[in-house]
Design a protein around this nucleic acid. Structure first.
Length: 571
RNA sequence: CGGGAUAUAGCGCAGCCUGGUAGCGCAUCUGCCUGGGGGGCAGAGGGUCGCAGGUUCAAAUCCUGCUAUUCCGACCA
């Protein structure tokens, strides 16, 4: 490609509404442009990268035995009624009507459509297992699109769905997909981790997420320093403290704390360690419960894990915090002064809290706290559950080592769905006994467009993007110096360009009548891995200059050797 | 959905408080110079000041409403 026939569309200034580095660089490098909130046009450079990611994903899916299909973006509401997700999905599901006033949705995912297809096309166990995938546009009407294509409303996803007659068979395909995903992310050149994950609203049993490690990631993932254990913080179990609860040493005392509405204020104003404080959070109980509200207790310096909390029996799902009015009506004190002593509603304590002694918490009287609280003596032994997020330094749930925490960008997610969808949609085959049997399903997603952003998050410097070789929009850039005056430069550049093209290399020949600085900056911003600089100065010595974007290195290469050397390096 | 901010040339911004000829940098176009790191000189084009009302002799500027964008929070395969 010649830049004179191309739409480079680079910009110098950083658009003011781009928050994270990948979004800024994608705009500056001319990869995407925003059309409306969460909707992006892919410019030629961005599209080249997107296609390269897609192709790697396709190759590995095909290699792993999956078969490509393509399903519509627009889906009839009937299917969503069948699985109950028409009601269950929130406003994130964009619902539309056609001219006959029939309901449709813009597909945020395709479990319904694929299950509809397979239940019609597959009748016998002999046709299974089957793993179908597509690379398709999805639409989710996100509450708050942000970070460019990282969290867009319209995005490209590879989604695969497998069908089986047994759990064993599902597990085998699940493992095959797990391995395929590792190959994909290896080939993409990304630093990533598979982690144990929550299944979220898609449902099912086993699940792993694949995270690209980056500071700007929206998820916390935790690792053991002594084993392969890695999990999303949503899922990571916080073990009970290894030490049993110590005996009480303090008397229960009530203290006026008019200016301490938060744990931070309490710790700042009174001589109490934050590890000796307890936070009391009030949530709604589920409808069957005889109480309206339930109190959840976590240590002052710990965070409630909402995913864990809403899975506890008796707690409303989705988790809903009580309002101040509801709390006052039930307890008679405001949120800043709550605690387990004399609390008229059920109490569930985190494992850590259950093992505490001599702790402080609100007195359920405005402006009052108790110090020296001890379970059994001052408050009934609570129901105990794992309620909190793990923190760095916690023991690993696998039994080996301690945990550390890093930020990750979720780029892949695989699930063992079981019969969640096949059952409600009655997707069955005849088994070996000639009986109808509901199929068991797995589903496997990769955020293709998100990977483009994630790759940049992980590979950039002050000059711009540094593409991993496998997904660079162009592999080699040719920068001629003063080509429009020097025939010698033009000739060498032209020959090298043709040579690289004939060898099938993605090469960008910067034949614009621009000053050198402009060309250097553009190629660096765009992140092209290899650059050849051709100028009279070096041609006098029969050499050209080779620059490596990633290493930042320069070397001189003989004119007649450069093509061979580049080609050798690419293999 | 709650709280805050913003909307002026393609992009980034000033002007608004204190009403009176719409401005700066970059980009674009023309010419000349320059030619190894976003260069210089000279000139040119480009605006419904988000939209709709209101106040006023006069509104980018003051008032009201709306819309969009954005940040924080809640929410989220």
């Amino acid at each position: 490609m010649r830049t004179s026939n191309y739409l480079l569309s680079t910009v110098k200034e950083t658009p003011s509404d781009a928050e994270i580095i990948s979004h800024q660089l994608m705009l500056r490098a001319g990869m995407v442009r925003k059309l409306a909130s969460g909707l992006y046009t892919w410019l030629p450079t961005g599209l080249r990268v997107l296609r390269k990611v897609e192709n790697i994903v396709r190759e590995e899916m095909d290699r792993a035995g999956a078969i490509e299909v393509l399903m519509p973006v627009v889906q009839p509401a009937d299917l969503w009624h069948e699985t109950g997700r028409w009601e269950k999905f929130g406003p994130e599901l964009l619902r539309i009507k056609d001219r006959h006033q029939r309901d449709f949705v813009l597909g945020p995912t395709h479990e319904e459509v694929i299950t509809e297809l397979v239940r019609k096309e597959v009748a016998s166990y002999k046709q299974l297992p089957l793993n179908l995938y597509q690379v398709q546009t999805k639409f989710r009407d996100e509450v708050r699109p942000r970070f460019g294509v990282m969290r867009a409303r319209e995005f490209t996803m590879k989604d695969a769905y497998s069908f089986h007659t047994s759990q064993e068979c599902l597990e085998k395909t699940y493992q095959t997909m797990f391995d395929a995903y590792c190959r994909i992310f290896d080939r993409l050149g990304l630093e990533y981790r598979p982690v144990i994950a929550d299944t979220g609203s898609i449902g099912g049993s086993a699940s792993h997420e694949f995270h690209v490690l980056a500071q700007s990631g929206e998820d916390d993932i935790v690792f053991s320093d002594a084993s392969d254990y890695a999990a999303n913080i949503e899922k990571a179990e916080a073990l009970a403290p290894s030490e049993p609860r110590a005996a009480a040493t303090q008397e229960l005392t009530q203290v006026a704390t008019p200016d301490a509405k938060t744990i931070e204020e309490l710790v700042a104003q009174f001589d109490v360690a934050i590890e000796k404080t307890v936070k009391t959070l009030i949530v709604k109980a589920d409808e069957e419960s005889e109480h309206e509200l339930i109190a959840l207790l976590v240590r002052g310096d710990h965070e409630l894990n909402e995913i864990k909390a809403e899975k506890i029996e008796g707690i409303a799902s989705p988790l809903t915090f009580a309002t101040e009015e509801e709390i006052r009506a039930a307890i008679g004190a405001g949120p800043g002064s709550l605690g387990p002593v004399n609390l008229p509603i059920p109490v569930i304590a985190d494992r850590t809290v259950a093992a505490m002694n001599d702790f402080s918490a609100g007195a359920n009287i405005d402006g009052q706290h108790f110090f020296g609280i001890n379970w059994g003596r001052d408050a009934n032994e609570p129901q105990v559950a794992d309620l909190r997020n793990v923190v760095a330094g916690d023991l690993s749930p696998c039994g080996q080592g301690t945990l550390s925490i890093a930020r990750g960008i979720e780029v892949g997610h695989i699930f063992q769905l079981g019969d969640n969808y096949s059952k409600s949609m009655n997707a069955a085959v005849l088994n070996e006994q000639g009986k109808n049997q509901i199929m068991t399903m797995g589903c496997y997603g990769i955020g293709v467009s998100r990977i483009v952003a994630a790759a940049i998050e992980q590979n950039n410097d002050e000059h711009g993007i540094i593409w991993p070789e496998a997904i660079a929009p162009f592999t080699v850039a040719i920068i001629p110096m003063n080509m429009h005056k020097s025939e010698r430069v033009a000739e060498v550049a032209e020959q090298l360009y043709q040579g690289l093209r004939e060898a099938g290399v993605d090469v960008l020949f910067d034949d614009r009548k621009e000053r050198p600085g402009v060309m250097f900056k553009d190629m660096e911003l765009t992140g092209i891995p290899h650059t050849i600089v051709i100028g009279d100065r070096s041609l006098d010595n029969q050499v050209v200059e080779y620059k490596n974007r990633k290493l930042g290195s320069k070397e001189e290469v003989a004119v007649d050797a450069v093509l061979g050397q580049i080609l050798a390096q690419l293999n």
